[in-house]
């Protein structure tokens, strides 16, 4: 998904770092990586360390980090939308033409913003000023950190071959941090391979009702300018 943008912008100072939040490790990720053959680095994060450090809650979520190691866009949905909820035929996993067009439109918008930042740096309207980046930073609650401890323990026990002992901790991580679809889907998958895409998943998606699966991202409108008629970034 990111190869095109990397090819185009790697000589302009962009590095794409992809992280597989995947407790299956090389075993489950290798077929995907072998098929996509990305030339940018792909790291395998069995413990979901990056999700915890950056507050990621789904895939794809992305963070933009400048040359000095400063976050200019905190974790957010990376060019995806909930169009799959209405435009995907669940039995065949085929997306309607309308759904495909919507997906393409969002990706193009996202790639355009990424390109603008790479080429123009902090002058880009998409490089958030620090106040706005802080405002958009993920919120971490006591429940979320307790979820992280439970996930860590469950994932460790599962990897050590103690599946039955692991499951209650994994379920507790899900319960404590229900907004984290990466916890939900990963822990389902550890319960039973394939469960992350099973009717259990779709029932949970349907249960969202009006709430988003992919939190909508607002690319522009963040730069504070004197001409701004209203508070920035609250569109």
């Amino acid at each position: 998904m990111w190869q095109g943008v990397y090819d185009e912008l790697k000589d302009r100072g962009l590095m794409v770092v992809s992280v597989a939040l995947d407790s299956g490790g090389a075993r489950t990720t290798r077929p995907w990586i072998d098929a996509a053959k990305p030339t940018y680095p792909c790291f395998i994060d069995e413990r979901h360390v990056v999700a915890e450090l950056y507050g990621m809650v789904n895939v794809p979520n992305a963070v933009w980090i400048d040359e000095e190691g400063r976050v200019v866009r905190p974790s957010e949905t990376a060019g995806s939308s909930d169009s799959f909820r209405t435009h995907l035929d669940r039995p065949t996993k085929q997306m309607s033409a309308e759904g495909l067009a919507e997906r393409q439109r969002l990706r193009t918008e996202y790639f355009d913003a990424l390109r603008d930042w790479v080429l123009t740096g902090e002058a880009s309207a998409y490089a958030l000023p620090p106040d706005e980046a802080r405002r958009r930073s993920p919120v971490v609650t006591d429940e979320h950190v307790l979820a992280a401890a439970n996930f860590r323990l469950g994932q460790f026990l599962h990897a050590a071959g103690h599946r039955d002992a692991a499951l209650p901790y994994l379920a507790e991580a899900r319960r404590l941090h229900p907004e984290s679809w990466s916890y939900r889907r990963q822990t389902w998958e550890l319960e039973q391979p394939g469960k992350a895409g099973s009717p259990t998943f779709w029932a949970a998606v349907d249960e969202l009702g009006d709430r988003a699966y992919y939190i909508p991202f607002a690319m522009g409108g963040a730069r504070r300018t004197p001409q701004s008629p209203h508070a920035p970034g609250r569109e």
Partner: peptide, 20 residues
């Protein structure tokens, strides 16, 4: 092993995915 800090000096697009 690779550290994120190996890419300091570049703009980094850090993005998650998964097989599940």
């Amino acid at each position: 092993p690779h550290a994120l800090s190996e890419y300091r000096g570049k703009k980094v697009f850090l993005v998650s995915w998964a097989s599940w």
